[in-house]
Design a binder for these strands. Structure first.
Lengths: 174, 174
DNA sequence: GCTAGCATGTAAACGGTTACATGATTAG
DNA sequence: CTAATCATGTAACCGTTTACATGCTAGC
């Protein structure tokens, strides 16, 4: 997930680690901050895996900057991930949102729409949020105030997303 | 997080691992499934930590069941977690939802309301979703179709949640 | 005879959190 | 003079994923 984010941000411009961190922070960093201990090892891994190139530049007075850029392999890996997301990337809202953030990098509108459609199918499955005895619980049947809240919020969220998905798919296909 | 879920479900009834798994699955399992490799070690950890007691019962033809129940320490740990959630539990929607699922176990309405208020404050901060150059990006200003979607969905979600929080807090305080 | 469901576990690999560590420049 | 910002990294610890492993019963 972090790796997708890194590749996604580097798709357009080479960036150094610190700047990358700021970008990632800007993309929902208030929800889940990025730590240096996650970022720098991830960069090293991606360089080792041949998905990134690095070169060093003097920093603005501070430590020298490590400038990262996508290799062809890295670009291919990003596009492949966007084109063929794993189930977990579709199911998990957090992951799907990360996907969305970079879906614009896919060159084909048809492929973009296909990804949106997968999410749409998932949301349209009668699997709302909370199950009991094998079937979804409806908010009205839930006695607990807080679980009722979960259900209501989940429903509203799902509806908002479905609405946007429908519009976006229509836009892409027009 | 898994541990909170386990403690939360065991708060009412003792359960064996397999049944616990089914409950956890029912609570958003379609979004992020629980694996045995996460569950059973977590149970062992909690037993070792003195938060759970275990006893064995013959299963229905299958392997013998490991029945888990909360100890006093486990009950105390659960209530403490619910009463004093870490920032990450408030910020991260996924975590907050887990908290919500068990918030009903807190005996005091005032304490329940206090937790909801923390989430409310977080959502009311001008930190909507996507930052650029230090300030939140508004959906109208976002040229990328997909990022615009992220923003719109995030806004709708936030609003639904804020609405429910306001109502729920009012209910709790009446 | 086979598959699905019940029921439990282990082990390697991976990735993230937290804490530690360093050091220069700029603004107050 | 001191705090914030810039800029990078390491190491221990922890929990999750993934894969492997076992074995019984009930229904088709």
């Amino acid at each position: 997930m972090l790796e997708l984010t890194i590749l996604g941000f580097l798709y357009e411009h080479p960036l150094h680690g610190y700047e990358l961190k700021a970008r990632i922070q800007g993309l929902s960093g208030h929800v889940r901050p990025v730590s240096d201990g996650a970022l720098y090892p991830a960069l090293t891994r991606l360089v080792k895996a041949g998905k990134l190139d690095q070169r060093t530049e003097p920093g603005t007075g501070a430590a020298p900057r490590r400038i990262l850029s996508l290799t062809d392999a890295g670009r291919a890996a990003l596009l492949d991930h966007l084109r063929h997301p794993k189930d977990a990337d579709i199911t998990d809202g957090q992951r799907f949102f990360t996907l969305l953030a970079f879906l614009g990098h896919l060159p084909s509108r048809a492929e973009q729409a296909a990804v949106l459609r997968r999410r749409q199918e998932f949301l349209n499955a009668p699997a709302s949020f909370f199950y009991e005895e094998g079937r979804p619980v409806r908010a009205e049947d839930e006695p607990d105030l807080f679980r009722q809240g979960m259900l209501r919020i989940a429903r509203a969220t799902g509806n908002a997303e479905k609405k946007w998905l429908t519009e976006a798919i229509a836009t892409l296909e027009s």
